[in-house]
């Protein structure tokens, strides 16, 4: 089995994610289409590239397979490669992909895994807070904060992302001596959420896949 470079693998996943988002918008079975397409692309690329699949080799395959819009049938001329010389397709940015994903049937499909882990942990803590309200009414305040964090982290609210990091960092320092376990849990939450930085602050002008490059080949 051929080995894929990190760049090639990232390009493939980016491409398939774009196809999936567009296919869902069209009401198609995105999983089935992406599964077939992945098989097709991997087989074709590995046959031509040999032992090591590079991003260049992948792009040659994708040029024949079509742009995500063509594959999903979004173009009015889908089914044919509309490669008129001089025309270029706009470069797709993280911001654009996120905007498209917001129209998807599954608006949370791009939320990073680590955020889901944090949300699960906050959920468990929130249940504890809820049960503690009768004996300690202040717990309602912590429960409210957790609801805010879960909502904000899921919806990509930047101020909640920053506030969460600030609050977790305070807890790490505050409980460091008195309750090391609590401090450690907050450190883990801080690291998990901080690692999703690009989800909340995507590189606006960084292309994830340069279609102009493919079209020019």
């Amino acid at each position: 089995m051929a080995e894929w470079t990190h760049e090639a693998r990232a390009c493939l996943e980016s491409y398939l994610a774009q196809v999936a988002a567009l296919a869902r918008r069209q009401g198609d079975d995105a999983e089935e289409i992406v599964s077939d397409l992945r098989e097709h692309i991997c087989r074709e690329t590995e046959e031509t590239a040999g032992a090591l699949v590079t991003a260049d080799a992948l792009q040659k395959t994708l040029a024949a397979v079509g742009t995500p819009e063509q594959v999903a049938g979004v173009d009015s001329v889908a089914g044919l490669p509309p490669l008129e010389p001089g025309l270029t397709r706009p470069v797709r940015t993280e911001a654009r992909i996120r905007a498209e994903a917001s129209l998807d049937h599954s608006p949370y499909s791009l939320v990073p895994l680590q955020i889901w882990v944090v949300i699960a942990l906050l959920g468990f803590e929130g249940i504890g807070n809820l049960l503690a309200i009768p004996s300690n009414p202040v717990s309602a305040l912590w429960l409210g904060a957790k609801i805010l964090f879960v909502t904000g982290l899921l919806l990509g609210w930047r101020w909640v992302f920053i506030f969460f990091l600030f609050e977790a960092a305070i807890h790490v320092v505050f409980f460091f001596a008195a309750a090391p376990v609590v401090s450690l849990i907050n450190l883990a939450l801080f690291v998990l959420v901080a690692s999703a930085f690009r989800f909340y602050f995507p590189k606006r002008d960084a292309p994830t896949f340069d279609w102009a490059r493919i079209r020019d080949k």
Partner: peptide, 17 residues
């Protein structure tokens, strides 16, 4: 016929559905 290869899979999926 001149097909773009990737466009066939959504069509196959629709025909299956």
């Amino acid at each position: 016929l001149v097909v773009t290869e990737g466009t066939i899979y959504p069509l196959l999926s629709r025909l299956r559905k």
